[in-house]
Structure formats: structure tokens, C-alpha cells
């Protein structure tokens, strides 16, 4: 039995399909649902945490159906929404103790003390949350979420609005929790974090799951090398066989090639022949960003971009 299972999970808001037949299993790992804003990430989490009823399909958390056994589901999970909801007029300890008591934890005070120490909040625990930094508030939310030792932890944009150091700390804690056997389901749109800290990622766009796998797998599936070109003036695809344009934004075009070293001069020649002025060419390994752009597509596609050709190429690759 997997910690999270969804089967054709679907949610409509009126005519708008927010989540479209999502089937997933997640177990004992850090799983990230990636997607642009409004792609259905939060809707998915709300359905899994029993806050929203699916229009179609089913979901189970620790074997309990999210619609029929709401209370059992809520008992086995914790949910940290993206709003950073901690009471600023209460101290850190009071905030944590409230949740320990609401969960009916035995010896709530000891449990809170222990977790405040883990999250490095002990020495500031009796100050009002008003004076806490963003990173401290997030860690306090983790304390609240962990008081009842949940089997599954849902984090909606856990590092949103935090500085680099605070983000690193949050991810350290998430990784430590996974090692302790917890299943962690995060939503994020920070690709670099998903790449470094998540075991598997799912890319969702307009409610549909478009890609699923471990970051190295997804990058390997994309191809060997990525070439980025900085363009002066108008841009169109020079159209070289074996070198595929997959993203274009402002003045940067990204191409995929089997062998980047050999493709570089070929591409440079093609640009010259097409009369396109190139300021710089760079060769690098694919990142999760590239996977994301390749899967979801650039939101605003520039004029002159050959849509049909792009689709044909995509189809050939599969």
C-alpha cells in the first residue's frame, strides 16, 4: 500500500478543469508536483487533504479514502498551506502547543519542546511570533505539522518568499524527515530545489500530468546537451536536423542536441546562413528547467516560431 494513491483524480470549477484525471502513487519519498501558477497543484493538495471534494476519481492517503474516511486521512497527514498562518500575537511555543493539544498528543509540552529543539527554535520559543523572521515562521509551521508524527506531510510552496539560507534549512529538515520514513509531498515552482532535493517529480500543466520521474531520468530523457543562444534582433528557428529548438524567451533560444560539441559549429553556421546575429552560444547539461520548458512549453511563443514543426518533432521524440 502506497502512502498516497490517486486514480483519475479530477476537479472542475464550473467549466474549468483544474485537475484532469491525475493518477499517481507516492510512497516514502520526497515527491514534488511542479507546474506553472494555476496549473492545479494546490487543488490537488486540497483534494488529498480532504478539504475539497473531487469531481471524479478517487484518492487514498495511507489506505484511507479521502472522501469516505476524512477523519482517518486527516489523522495520518499534516498540511502546511502556503499562507504562513502562525498567530503573531502568540509565542512560538503557544502556537505549537495549540496544535499538539488539538491533535490530542500525549505529553504535548514535551513533544513541543523536543520539536522546537529540532527546528532550532528553542531559545526564541517564548517570544511572540511577531518578531520571527520568515524562515523561523516556516520552521514553526513545521513544528506544528510534526507534533502528531504524521505519516504523510503536505507542503504547499514550502520555500516561497524565503531567503537562500532559510530555503536550504527547510530542505535539510525535509530531507531528514524523509530519512525517518515519512512521505513528503511538496508543490513548488523552484526547479533547482526540486532537482536537488526531490526523489521524484511530476510536471503538471493545465491540470494534466505531463511528465513523471526522477530528476536525473527526466533530464536523461530530454537528450544529452542543451545549447543556448543569445540572439540580437528577430529570431526564427534556423532548422538544422538533429538540433531541436524547445524554448525561446526574450532573447534566449534553447536547443537540444545529441552531441553538443559537434552541434555548436553546425548551429553557428546555420545562424550565419539564415542571417541571424548571435551574441553568444553556450553548451551545458540539461537542467530540470529545460525539462519543464520542454514539457510545458514557453507561455508566450514568439512570432515566426513554427508550431507544427515543433509538435512533429515532439511526437518523433516520444
Amino acid at each position: 500500500m502506497n502512502a498516497i494513491e490517486t486514480h483519475d483524480l479530477t476537479r472542475y470549477y464550473g467549466d474549468l478543469c483544474a485537475v484532469n484525471h491525475l493518477s499517481l502513487s507516492v510512497d516514502h519519498e520526497v515527491f514534488a508536483l511542479l507546474g506553472p501558477n494555476g496549473s492545479g497543484k494546490t487543488t490537488t493538495v486540497l483534494m488529498l487533504t480532504t478539504m475539497l471534494r473531487p469531481t471524479e476519481g478517487t484518492a487514498t492517503v495511507c489506505g484511507h479514502d479521502t472522501v469516505r474516511d476524512g477523519e482517518l486521512v486527516r489523522r495520518s497527514l499534516s498540511y502546511v498551506p502556503q499562507d504562513m498562518a502562525v498567530d503573531i500575537k502568540l509565542t512560538g511555543r503557544e502556537n505549537a502547543l495549540l496544535f499538539a493539544r488539538l491533535y490530542g498528543v500525549t505529553a504535548p509540552k514535551d513533544r513541543v519542546d523536543e520539536l522546537l529543539a529540532v527546528m532550532q527554535l528553542s531559545d526564541r520559543a517564548d517570544e511572540l511570533v511577531k518578531v520571527y523572521s520568515g524562515g523561523m515562521r516556516r520552521r514553526l509551521e513545521l513544528v506544528q505539522a510534526l507534533v502528531h508524527e504524521p505519516e504523510v506531510l503536505f507542503l504547499d510552496e514550502p520555500t516561497l518568499g524565503l531567503d537562500v539560507a532559510a530555503r536550504a534549512t527547510i530542505w535539510e529538515h525535509i530531507t531528514a524527515l524523509k530519512k525517518g520514513g515519512m512521505t513528503i509531498f511538496v508543490t513548488t515552482h523552484y526547479m533547482d530545489e526540486a532537482d536537488r532535493f526531490c526523489d521524484r517529480v511530476g510536471i503538471i500543466s493545465r491540470g494534466m500530468l505531463l511528465a513523471l520521474g526522477s530528476p536525473p531520468d527526466l533530464k536523461a530523457r530530454l537528450g544529452n546537451d542543451v545549447i543556448t543562444a543569445h540572439i540580437d534582433g528577430t529570431f526564427r528557428d534556423p532548422g538544422v536536423d538533429g538540433i531541436m529548438l524547445f524554448a525561446f524567451a526574450s532573447d534566449e533560444a534553447s536547443f537540444l542536441a545529441e552531441n553538443g560539441r559537434e552541434a555548436l559549429p553546425v548551429l553557428a553556421d546555420a545562424f550565419t546562413r539564415a542571417g541571424i546575429k548571435v551574441r553568444a552560444l553556450a553548451l551545458r547539461e540539461p537542467t530540470l528547467d529545460d525539462v519543464f520548458l520542454h514539457t510545458v512549453g514557453t507561455p508566450e511563443e514568439p512570432a515566426g516560431f513554427d508550431q507544427t514543426k515543433f509538435r512533429t518533432m515532439l511526437r518523433r521524440r516520444r
Partner: peptide, 13 residues
Amino acid sequence: ILGFLNKFLALPS
């Protein structure tokens, strides 16, 4: 509005 209700609704109590 501040997101507390969501956290309370996700509790088993």
C-alpha cells in the same frame, strides 16, 4: 483569510 481555518479544517479533531 489568513489561512488558519484551512489548517484547522485539516485537523482530525
